[in-house]
Design a protein around this nucleic acid. Structure first.
Length: 257
DNA sequence: CGTGTTGTTCAGTT
DNA sequence: TAACTGAACAACAC
């Protein structure tokens, strides 16, 4: 799932259930999701700490505590789940934070990414050193400058977290469809009008996705049509399905140029 | 058994 | 150098 809207949803979820809560215990059920720390160290470092307000950069969720920082990257299948009790745990719950009210679980089927523990704000900065500006806060001028700086495929550039942080496969297909731009266009071929439209549609898709906590299926969006009729919701032509930038891409060759 | 999956990284190639 | 390609990671569902 996780692209910017999903991770923003997890940030709000963590703010609701975790912020201000004390971590009574940490149960590492599968250390395969721990990236720079052992299960024993994570438990030792976080037990007794209190979660602070979480923040987000691109697809990274970060939270300080009154001890170390915790950073989460959800990969393709990570999620957070709070429960009032220790019942009903899921088999893909990999780490459980037992709180002074309920427990918060990091669930992840594929374990492609996971949890990092950082001992300082500098450690967090180092972790995010290669990330571009967040897609929600980047300015129109900055987006244009970054896209135009190199010759690249448009979809490849938008998915590159070093250029812009937070956009993934579904978001990019959706915003390109709204903007009427073909995914394999070259960034250097975009004029000022194209870049303006792209920026506007990126903001629009993000703004409408965040309250849903995902890229939603809407009547005039293509996301819901990938697995359904595979037709363009605007002109009803069959959507093209092809690999672009290494990812399965849907687009409309009549509406996107 | 083969295919596909909303992410990232790395080795190898153009 | 820059950009691209495919594999790897891991665990399924169909």
């Amino acid at each position: 799932m996780p692209e910017l809207p999903d991770v923003e949803g997890f940030r709000r979820y963590l703010a609701l259930h975790g912020a201000g809560r004390r971590i009574k215990d940490v149960e590492v059920l599968d250390a395969g999701v721990l990236r720079n720390v052992s299960g024993a160290e994570l438990r030792r470092e976080l037990r007794g700490c209190r979660f602070g307000e979480p923040c987000r950069h691109g697809k990274w969720l970060l939270t300080r505590t009154d001890g170390p920082w915790l950073a989460i990257h959800f990969g393709m299948t990570g999620s957070l789940h709070w429960s009032a009790s220790a019942e009903d745990r899921h088999r893909h719950d990999r780490v459980v934070f037992v709180l002074d009210r309920g427990e918060l679980r990091y669930r992840d089927l594929r374990k492609l990414r996971g949890l990092w523990l950082l001992h300082s704000e500098e450690g967090v900065q180092r972790l995010l050193a290669n990330q571009g500006p967040d897609a929600l806060s980047v300015s129109r001028v900055e987006l244009s400058r970054r896209l135009s700086s190199r010759v690249r495929g448009l979809k490849s550039a938008l998915m590159d977290q070093r250029l812009i942080a937070g956009l993934g496969n579904l978001l990019v297909d959706e915003m390109l469809w709204h903007a009427g731009l073909a995914p394999q266009r070259d960034t250097k071929s975009l004029g000022p009008a194209d870049l303006g439209t792209l920026y506007r549609e990126m903001r629009s898709v993000l703004r409408q996705s965040i309250p849903e906590g995902c890229v939603p299926s809407k009547p005039r969006w293509i996301t819901g049509h990938r697995d359904a009729d595979r037709r363009c919701p605007r002109c009803h032509q069959s959507l093209r399905r092809q690999t672009v930038a290494g990812r399965t891409t849907y687009w409309c060759s009549r509406c996107q140029h």
